[in-house]
Structure formats: structure tokens, C-alpha cells
């Protein structure tokens, strides 16, 4: 057969979408509402419809149908590489997909259909963060904690910070570096400042749990414990602030060291971030 012929029914084993619809009406209806149905989008789907992804259906029909009987399905037990390969036939040149291979998702058996529901009308974009939380349970828990970024409130999406389709950065961060990512919203911390606090200049995550924390300000540990994990000196830095500490000495280091992300003061107190 001439596989380059324009009519779908002359390709080897292809039966056309109308035949599929006879048994899979619900899936067909959702397909017609999807972007994939748009004839103006060039690609094999404009011609092959259902069989673009599911493969030729003749044998499937001949054998009387049945789940996975001589037809490609996107079921859980199907090799994720094979499933993604179907999508990448067209989408390997979609902007942002160039780093799919080095990405963590591909290497951990996440396939396109793990996140994208292709038979939902109108939009194929995943529900973010719900879809991400299905696998990243720890992040879901963190996002629920007392101190958190506004992920559950819908003001930050997982994809605001991460590139789910792959990245050369750790954790598939959507920036040249995790700090550069933080600066998108927190440019006040970018500096350069006169008096630098070295951990701030190296990694925000030295002190902050980015998805959420049981401690205020998304801190890894409460203050003063967090500060004392790095600082000891004469008098107050090394003093144990136990339950017998006086009221005035209970309060946290930031009561005086407010410029903890770096100070611009010409005063020498900037060195200790108190100016």
C-alpha cells in the first residue's frame, strides 16, 4: 500500500476515526474537542486521527476489540519510553522539549500521559499542582505546612519554578541556578551588597525549605537554633536560650540582625547585619 497517500483508509491497517468512534464514542468526542483535532495544526494527527497515537486499528477490529488487543494503549503497564515516543514523534521539536532526555522525569519512568490527560476537552495542560502531588507526596505535605509558598492558594504553580519537560539543572529548576530563580520574585535579596552573608550568596536553601516548613519564614529550623548551627562567639551567639531564659533574651537573632540577607550600610555594624 502507498502509505504516503492522503486518504487514511488506504494506509496499511488504518481504519479511520469513524470506525473507532463506533465503539469508543466517549474518547472520540473528547478527541474532537482537543487541540489535536484542529486541522490547522500540521502533523500526522490531521490525517490519522486516533491511529496517530494508537496505531493502525484493523487487527484490533478484526479480533473483536478488547483492551490492548492489537492496539497501542497508554495503560500503566506499558513501557513509559514507548508511550512517550508516541508523543515525541511530533513534540520532540516543541520548544522546551529539547532537554527531555537528560531530564529527571524521563529517567524515572514518567511518560507524557503520566501528567497529560489527552482525552479531556479543550486543554491538555496538567492540573498543577495536583498532578505533581500525585508523585511528589513530600512536596504536597510541605506545601500544607504552616509556613509555605502560596502553592495551594494557586498563586505559584510547580511549573513556575520547575521545568517538568527537562532541564540541565538539579531538580529541573527553571533558571540558571536556584538562587536566580528565587530572585525572580525576591529581587530585593539579589544585591550585590556591601556586607555579604556568605550562605545567602551561595544557596538560599542553606536556611530555607522552599516548599514549606513548620517553622516561620520557611526556615529549616527555628531561630536561634538555625543561627547557632553556624555561629558561636563570646556572649550571646553561644548562649543556650532555654526555657529559663529571661523574656528579653528569648527573642530571636533577627531582633537586631535584621539585615540578615546582606547590609548596604556604610556603618561597621553592617558586618554583623545590624545596620
Amino acid at each position: 500500500a502507498d502509505v504516503s497517500a492522503s486518504a487514511p483508509d488506504v494506509k496499511m491497517g488504518f481504519i479511520g476515526a469513524k470506525t473507532c468512534k463506533e465503539c469508543h464514542e466517549k474518547q472520540y468526542e473528547s478527541y474532537t474537542r482537543s487541540v489535536h483535532y484542529k486541522k490547522s495544526i500540521k502533523g500526522p494527527q490531521a490525517q490519522d486521527a486516533c491511529e496517530t497515537c494508537h496505531g493502525p486499528g484493523a487487527m484490533h477490529v478484526e479480533k473483536g476489540g478488547g483492551r490492548g488487543v492489537d492496539i497501542f494503549t497508554f495503560d500503566k503497564n506499558v513501557d513509559p519510553l514507548e508511550k512517550s515516543a508516541k508523543c515525541l514523534t511530533c513534540h520532540d521539536t516543541t520548544p522546551g522539549m529539547d532537554l527531555w532526555d537528560p531530564g529527571v522525569h524521563k529517567r524515572n519512568d514518567v511518560s507524557c500521559d503520566s501528567c497529560h490527560d489527552l482525552h479531556v476537552g479543550g486543554r491538555q495542560k496538567p492540573r498543577d499542582p495536583e498532578v505533581c502531588f500525585d508523585c511528589h507526596r513530600d512536596v504536597k505535605i510541605d506545601a500544607n505546612k504552616r509556613s509555605h509558598h502560596p502553592i495551594l492558594e494557586g498563586k505559584i504553580r510547580c511549573s513556575s519554578c520547575h521545568s517538568p519537560h527537562g532541564s540541565l539543572n538539579k531538580h529541573m529548576v527553571e533558571a540558571d541556578d536556584p538562587r536566580e530563580l528565587c530572585f525572580k520574585c525576591h529581587a530585593d535579596k539579589r544585591g550585590p551588597v556591601v556586607w555579604e552573608h556568605a550562605p545567602v550568596e551561595e544557596d538560599c536553601q542553606s536556611c530555607h525549605a522552599v516548599h514549606g516548613s513548620s517553622h516561620a519564614r520557611l526556615l529549616l529550623e527555628r531561630i536561634p537554633q538555625l543561627c547557632q548551627n553556624c555561629h558561636d562567639w563570646s556572649r550571646h551567639p553561644g548562649t543556650p536560650y532555654d526555657s529559663t531564659a529571661s523574656f528579653t533574651s528569648r527573642f530571636e537573632c533577627l531582633r537586631c540582625h535584621s539585615a540578615i540577607h546582606g547590609s548596604n550600610s556604610p556603618h561597621a555594624g553592617g558586618l554583623r547585619f545590624v545596620r
Binding site: 544585591g191 547590609s263 548596604n264 545596620r275
Partner: peptide, 10 residues
Amino acid sequence: EYSTPIDNYS
């Protein structure tokens, strides 16, 4: 007088 976040560009 106390310093505040510095004007900056990148």
C-alpha cells in the same frame, strides 16, 4: 540610620 535592600539590576 539603617540600610534597606539595595537598588540593583541584572
